[in-house]
Nucleic acid binder design. Structure first.
Lengths: 327, 327
DNA sequence: CATTTTGTGTCAAACGCTTGACATAAAGAA
DNA sequence: TTCTTTATGTCAAGCGTTTGACACAAAATG
């Protein structure tokens, strides 16, 4: 109701709105005395400049959209945390969108974000046609997928991650290994992990098998049945390279139920190194993605684009093997 | 650059902006023919009404602020997911804020949200003075704390949760039990769990001990050392009631390291039943909070307040005991 | 003393949209 | 025929800011 505006402040301080606006935006000449008066009036009236009005005029909102499959998944929840963290440092607010990898929803979100004049969109979910993104004419950053030659993306070194994991399993003596990964039909850079898995297994002459999830890799409810099926169909696997730490958790659990000892009977390598990885029992060996760096970088790339600065398109961050107790 | 406005659409369709606005907002008389013309023009120009301009006029943004300690914590990540999910159903967008339980940050977020004219704020972090919230004069919903007699809050039945967990541990034969909980100095309804724990232990004449976390309960890095200390100082505890599933995960891990068998030597009950609870090994017995319902309810309460509808202030949802393998 | 710098004011346009007031005209109903 | 309903248009104000143009005066500088 209050709806105290710049006019009220001006009246209270006995100056004009122009003057108030000047102190607010630090332009033109302002004496300490009036500056004080204005600040006092703002305090007394509990005034906050209306960012909506400002945005309209400036044609800039300082809002970033972030679209991801689901923030309920540990990887994205940590990523979202860091994105928001650094966005805040840069002075941006964050609008959160969970697409659930649903095209219709994602499309609606994209349109909504445009209608709300966000300054840029960070996309960790990209189920639409490339054109739909490009026609936005908005600063964009994608995760784990390159949608166009000039749209920067951030990812980590998936191929190396796959190689590291596979080699480790083989080094530890596994003679048959499996890779549980996301759906390979989706055009994601994470598919490189499977490429590396296959290449490494072949090069080292080890039997291998690949299991893909549903289209929605991040629907955690499917993991148990998937793992169960793998173990039924391939009772002789000795090493499993999981597509994420959550999938690895499922593997550990199912193995435990079936009295397969980890790491004695089956060795497991996860992916991501989200914080639960080290809370599991036994603690999970995993490929660490630098989630914080990825989040920071994404924000930085959006920020630079917003300010018309040049950006590098390919941003592939290093991964590291974190060996704990499951190998 | 495009910045296609309602004027461009009007020109293209050969009508006035008033007419375009009418079809956009469904008011006044519009023939099918012009409606069509207008829609076609909008399509051709790839027009999206500028929500900022609309918001300014309507004095309503359809944006909800949500402040929580950190979306990186599984409980809040799931809660945030559901809040966003239902907010979207109601036509709201969500601005995400991670306060990290830092007063300064929370204060800045609150001011930011007000400046951005959000229609309401859902607060799962409330470290400020009550007045600071009330002076906002904004629809508010809090989680797990009542800040004023007329500010609705949603929580689950913490006392019952504490009772169920404690009784279960005792029923399973524990003769000394511990409760690891958040800092009791914080004015949170979750403290009821400890009340229940103490009352139940006393009533049933079982030895008990309470361990509090740092002020920031949701900083997961402290859990291991906390649990370790508990086990050192009280090597004879036979049952642990953890303040969250993540803390329980830490307990499981540390026990495993110290060769304490679960549930044979030590029994564990978690809290929340976030999805990782069932991914742990052994699967975690826990007190289930209805996170989805809590999220939905919070949105509903905000929505009603925005529309000046009456709301019930106390919204305490039921908890249930989910017994799995750690008891 | 003349000039420049500093401080403040007035005024009005603009951002993109909605909305009310009012006018006009054609089609249908009485 | 007259009245009402339907369909469209014109015009202008307003949402809360920012900003440029311009004016004026006091203080500082030369």
């Amino acid at each position: 109701m209050a709806a105290v505006t710049i006019k009220d402040v001006a009246k209270r301080a006995g100056v004009t709105v122009t003057t108030v606006s000047r102190v607010l935006n630090n332009r033109g000449y302002i004496s300490e005395a009036t500056r004080e008066k204005v600040y006092r009036a703002m305090k007394e009236l509990n005034y906050q400049p209306n960012e909506i009005a400002r945005s309209l005029l400036r044609r800039r909102t300082n809002i970033l959209g972030i679209i991801l499959p689901t923030v309920a998944h540990p990887f994205f929840s940590e990523l979202a945390f860091f994105i928001e963290y650094y966005a805040y440092e840069y002075g941006y607010k964050v609008m959160l969108c969970n697409s659930q990898l649903d095209q219709k929803k994602e499309k609606e979100y994209v349109e909504m974000l445009r209608a709300n004049q966000v300054d840029g969109i960070i996309m960790a979910s990209h189920t639409l046609e490339v054109d739909e993104y490009l026609s936005l004419k908005l600063p964009l950053v994608t995760f784990d997928r390159q949608i166009a030659p000039d749209v920067p993306f951030v990812s980590s070194d998936n191929y190396l991650g796959g190689t590291l994991a596979t080699n480790l399993l083989i080094d530890r003596g596994c003679r048959k290994i499996a890779h549980i990964c996301g759906n390979l039909r989706l055009n994601m850079l994470a598919n490189q992990r499977n490429k590396a898995f296959v290449a490494t297994a072949q090069a080292r002459k080890v039997e291998y098998v690949t299991v893909e999830t549903d289209l929605n890799v991040f629907d955690m409810r499917q993991y148990d049945t998937l793992v169960l099926r793998l173990l039924e169909e391939h009772p002789d696997v000795e090493g499993i390279f999981a597509g994420s730490d959550v999938i690895a958790a499922s593997v550990i659990k199912i193995c435990h139920q079936r009295k397969k000892r980890i790491p004695e009977d089956i060795k497991v390598v996860g992916y991501d190194d989200v914080s639960i990885a080290s809370f599991l029992t036994p603690q999970l060996t995993t490929i660490r993605q630098p989630i914080e760096d990825m989040g920071r970088l994404a924000v930085e790339l959006i920020h630079k684009q917003i300010n018309k600065e040049a950006v590098t398109v390919e941003n592939v961050l290093p991964v590291t093997l974190v060996e704990r107790e499951t190998t």
